[in-house]
Amino acid sequence: MSNVVLLSTRRLPPTYFDQVREDLGDQDITIDVVGWVAPSAWVADKVNTFTLIGPGRMPAQPVVEPEPVDPTDEAPDAVIAPEAVAEPEAVAADEKIAPAAAEVVEEKTESVQATTPDPAPQPAPATAKARPTGAKRVVKAVEWRARRARKVAGRMLPPAIKKSAPVKFLRGQRASSDLGKTYWARVLSRRDVLATIDQADVVVALDAGAIWAGWNLGQRKASTPVVLGLPAARRELDMLKVPAGNG
């Protein structure tokens, strides 16, 4: 049995891991995932482990709906005992007592209101925060003008340039680079993740955000193949099955 570790920074659905097994040739493998984002649903029945190292939390296990109850198994209607039914004379007596009780409650309410002290005076509202003066005022003004200049510069770019392929590519590259470094730093800080990777036969970086971590892992442990994408992982697994000397 081969152990495959998947590095991912994207949200993966449970069905994706069925596709992983199919792309890897339905081989006898165990799958461990190191994800920056939690999967879209419960995946404990799809993978060996899924270690979340980014923000958020893992999805909860789905609740199993209870089986419907057969109406024929319900208890028969309750029978009212004769002694539980009030007599007409008792009802009439209760109607006479009710007004008198209401008058007593009103008298007690008036006496309580008369003895209740006036509410305590509310504290005065807090005064507004003093504005910065002197050098602090100059610094705040410069920071405000810098933020405004960046906003104006962004609005001045024509929409065609903002939506152009080169600009989108550069923004995507910058975001992937920042995420990749953060992902790799989190991997290094987790002993459980490093222990899982040390037991892997093949490590697979699934997306651009995981490439930097994959490259660094390849430099740290040259004996374990670290590849990009499932086709390359399939080739590595096929090579592991070939006996030594027959290649």
Rank of each mutant, 00 (worst) to 15 (best):
P55W: 03
Q61C: 10
E74M: 10
A75L: 13
M58S: 02
D73Y: 00
E74H: 02
P55T: 12
V63M: 13
K46C: 05
E65V: 13
K46W: 03
N48A: 14
M58D: 01
E74F: 07
P76K: 07
T72L: 13
V64A: 14
T49G: 06
K46L: 09
M58F: 04
G56Q: 08
D73N: 09
P55K: 12
G54L: 04
V47F: 04
D77C: 05
P55Q: 13
P71A: 09
T72W: 04
Q61V: 09
A75V: 11
P62E: 06
G56M: 08
E74D: 11
P62I: 03
M58W: 01
F50V: 00
V69S: 09
V64E: 15
D70T: 06
A75R: 11
P76W: 03
E65T: 13
E65A: 15
V47N: 03
D77M: 10
P68Q: 08
A60L: 14
A75H: 05
P55G: 14
V47C: 11
V63A: 15
M58V: 04
T49F: 02
D73H: 06
V64S: 13
P71Y: 05
L52I: 09
T51Q: 13
P59I: 02
E65S: 13
P76C: 05
E65C: 01
Q61K: 15
T72M: 09
D70G: 03
G54F: 01
F50S: 00
A60M: 12
F50D: 00
P76E: 12
V64D: 12
E74T: 07
M58C: 06
G54H: 03
E74W: 03
D73T: 14
G54W: 00
D73Q: 10
A60C: 04
P71H: 05
P59F: 02
P55M: 10
V63E: 15
P66G: 07
D73K: 08
F50G: 00
I53E: 01
A75C: 01
P62M: 07
D77R: 11
V64R: 14
A60P: 10
P71K: 07
L52G: 03
E74R: 11
T49N: 15
L52K: 05
D70P: 04
P59L: 02
T51E: 14
Q61D: 11
T51K: 12
E67T: 12
E67F: 06
T72K: 09
D73L: 13
A60Q: 13
T72P: 00
V64F: 06
P62N: 10
D73A: 12
E67W: 04
P62C: 08
V69D: 07
P68W: 03
A75D: 13
P71S: 09
D77S: 10
E67I: 08
V64K: 15
T72Q: 11
K46D: 00
E65R: 14
F50P: 00
T51P: 01
P59N: 07
P66Y: 08
